Simulated assay, not measured.
Amino acid sequence: MKGKIGLVVGLGVGYVLGTRAGRERYEQIKTQWLKVWHLDPVQAQVTRVQDFAKSQAAAIPGALWNGAVKVAKAVSDSGTPGEKLDNAVDAAKDAAGDVADAAEDAAEAVQKRAEANSAAKRASKRTSTKSTAKPATKSTTKKNGS
């Protein structure tokens, strides 16, 4: 999926940058793109993606903050400077693990959401192709009574 999107974007950028029609054609392309971008279904999807990204990204700053608090507490504990340093290093390692876990959880949630959306699209396509298929009809012929 990423490859297809990248290809389309690359072709579009290459066309816009390489076109000999110049600014006028660029403005036409931009106008058409903005028409598509401002369609209600597109904006609905943009809003869904933004909301989902915000909810998933909220976990990472929390893990960072908790890690910083742990390191600060480890440094402020009583003991020799060497013990404080060791405690701070251990707390930092734990905090780094927590941040990595939060990022991994967010990535897994995104992956699951993408797979669910992909499955829903495939199911929708299967349903729509079945409903658009023409039903089989039997040909009827009249028999002459002669």
Rank of each mutant, 00 (worst) to 15 (best):
T129L: 07
A57E: 04
G10D: 07
S146T: 05
T127W: 10
V9A: 11
S76K: 15
K134I: 03
E115F: 00
K142P: 04
G6I: 04
V42K: 01
A72T: 05
G18Q: 10
Q32G: 01
K138D: 11
Y26L: 13
S55W: 02
A88N: 06
V71F: 13
K30S: 08
S118Q: 11
A136V: 07
L11V: 10
S128L: 15
T132M: 10
F52G: 00
K4V: 12
P135G: 03
A102Q: 01
T31P: 00
I5K: 14
I29C: 10
M1T: 06
T31R: 08
I5M: 11
E115D: 14
L64D: 06
A120Y: 13
D94S: 14
V46H: 01
G82L: 12
K121G: 01
K2Q: 13
D90W: 06
K142F: 08
K70M: 07
K142W: 07
A103M: 10
L34T: 04
L34I: 00
K121W: 09
A103F: 06
N117S: 14
L39T: 09
V9I: 11
K2A: 04
R48H: 03
W37K: 14
A88W: 02
R48I: 12
G97S: 05
G67Y: 03
A133N: 10
K54W: 06
K54N: 11
A100K: 15
E108R: 14
Y26R: 01
G145P: 08
K73H: 15
A95E: 06
Q56R: 11
V9T: 12
A109Y: 01
K138V: 06
G82E: 15
V42I: 14
E27F: 04
A103V: 03
G82F: 06
S76R: 12
M1N: 08
Y26M: 05
K138Y: 07
T31W: 00
Q50Y: 12
S78A: 11
W37H: 12
G6K: 14
Q50D: 04
E83S: 10
G79I: 02
E24L: 14
G18P: 06
K142T: 07
V42C: 00
V13G: 04
G18I: 09
A88Y: 00
G97M: 06
K130A: 13
A95K: 01
E83R: 04
V8K: 14
A44M: 12
A116R: 14
S124G: 08
T19H: 05
K121R: 00
H38Q: 12
L34A: 11
G12S: 15
L17T: 09
R122T: 12
L85H: 05
K134V: 06
K143R: 05
K121S: 03
T140N: 09
W37D: 10
S124Y: 02
Q28A: 07
A57V: 09
S139C: 02
G97Y: 03
